[in-house]
Computed example of a mutant assay.
Amino acid sequence: MAFVLRRVGHSLVVLLGVTVVVFALVHLVPGDPVRIAMGTRYDPDVYAALREASGLDRPLLEQYVAYLGSALTGDLGVSFRSGEPVTTILLSRLPATVSLAVAGLVVALVVAFPLGVYSALHHGKASDVIVRIVSQVGVSVPDFWMAMLLILLFSSTLGWLPPSGYVPLTEDPVEWARRVAMPAVTLGLVAGSIMTRYIRSSVLEVLGADHVRTAESKGLRERVVLGRHVVRNALVPVLTIVGVQLATMLGGVIVVEVVFAWPGLGRLVLDAVAARDYPVVQGAVLLVAAMFLLVNLVVDLLYARVDPRIKVSR
């Protein structure tokens, strides 16, 4: 419990720092959000009234203090562009981001775990070299190129999957699966290529440990040695990269969301930056930072479940 409280305290400090950095950066970006929102319907009196209503006429420090006070109560402000509460906008985009991130992580684990373990068990052989080459290609291929190839093959040529769009999981699970398939594969193949290399290295390191050689000398079956003594111990360092990849996906992979017209947080931030919609940018970045910290906390707690030698109470 002490460990959890300490980590939560650290996370709150980090979130405070995030609010300072993001608030400063968005106000350094050239462009007047009120003027952009008005478009061609510019009127000096309306312009002045909107700036006063949005608080942009006040000093930056005063604006930040007001924003921080509202954020602590769950009020992240109102969008300059749509006039909707930022919290409402974020909550409407969150399910799409979470569903895509989870689907992408599942694809990544399905690809990375067997390939990483197989490559480590066949270290130095031709199959190991092939796996390493394939994983390196997966890391090097740009997201947008892989996404376009998938659309060309499965949508334009074969006609099996829709090229873009989003349907909520709760409305139509089958249609959601059809539409999430290509974005998830795009994310999963890239993340899986990265994770394959980490899993291979981790399994190789454990295979050379003394306790594995002792288990083998006792005559235990290879399956038992692999499951009890190799894979479980190799999972500890692998959890870190899994958590990082999941947090990255939750943060919104902008290119993938734009290509597949996926209404997630990444695309929301891109549109908000273009429109100088400060409240939406600040709220979205704050939410992403909170999810990233939450994932890291969960990963730390999982360490103790995977490896009993780790004591989180210390």
Rank of each mutant, 00 (worst) to 15 (best):
M1A: 14
A2R: 11
A2H: 13
V4I: 14
L5K: 09
R7V: 01
R7P: 04
S11P: 09
L12H: 05
L12P: 00
L16F: 15
T19S: 14
V20T: 04
H27T: 02
G31S: 03
R35N: 04
A37Q: 08
M38G: 12
G39F: 06
R41W: 04
D43E: 13
A48K: 11
E52K: 14
G55R: 12
L56N: 00
D57Q: 15
D57S: 10
P59Y: 01
E62W: 08
Q63H: 03
Q63I: 05
Y64T: 07
Y64P: 02
Y64F: 14
V65P: 06
Y67I: 06
S70W: 00
A71Q: 10
L72K: 03
T73E: 11
L76H: 04
G77S: 09
V78H: 00
F80T: 01
S82W: 03
P85Y: 07
T87H: 03
I89E: 15
L91C: 10
R93C: 02
L94H: 04
S99I: 13
A101G: 04
L105A: 05
L109M: 03
V110W: 11
V111F: 10
P114A: 08
A120W: 09
H122K: 10
S127N: 05
D128F: 06
I133M: 13
I133F: 10
I133G: 12
V134R: 00
S135A: 11
Q136H: 07
Q136T: 14
V137Q: 00
G138E: 02
G138S: 05
M146H: 01
M148R: 13
M148A: 13
M148P: 05
L150H: 06
L152Y: 11
L153G: 03
S155Q: 07
S156V: 14
L158T: 10
S164I: 05
S164F: 05
V167S: 04
L169K: 08
T170L: 08
T170M: 12
E171P: 01
E175V: 06
W176H: 06
W176V: 04
V180C: 11
M182R: 01
M182T: 02
P183Y: 04
L187I: 05
L189A: 08
L189N: 10
V190A: 14
G192P: 13
G192F: 03
S193H: 07
T196A: 02
R197V: 15
Y198Q: 11
Y198S: 07
R200T: 04
R200S: 05
V203Y: 08
V206G: 09
L207N: 00
G208P: 00
V212T: 02
S217E: 15
S217W: 06
R221M: 11
G227M: 10
H229Y: 14
N233S: 04
V236C: 13
V236Y: 15
P237D: 13
V238I: 06
V242C: 09
V242Q: 00
V244S: 14
Q245C: 03
T248P: 08
L250H: 03
E257Q: 07
V258Q: 08
A261C: 02
P263Q: 05
R267V: 09
L268D: 07
L270C: 12
D271F: 11
D271S: 10
V273F: 01
A274L: 12
A274Y: 11
A274E: 15
P279I: 03
A284C: 02
V285S: 00
A289E: 12
A289T: 13
L294E: 05
L302V: 03
D307W: 04
P308V: 10
R309V: 00
I310H: 06
I310C: 01
R314F: 04
R314S: 07
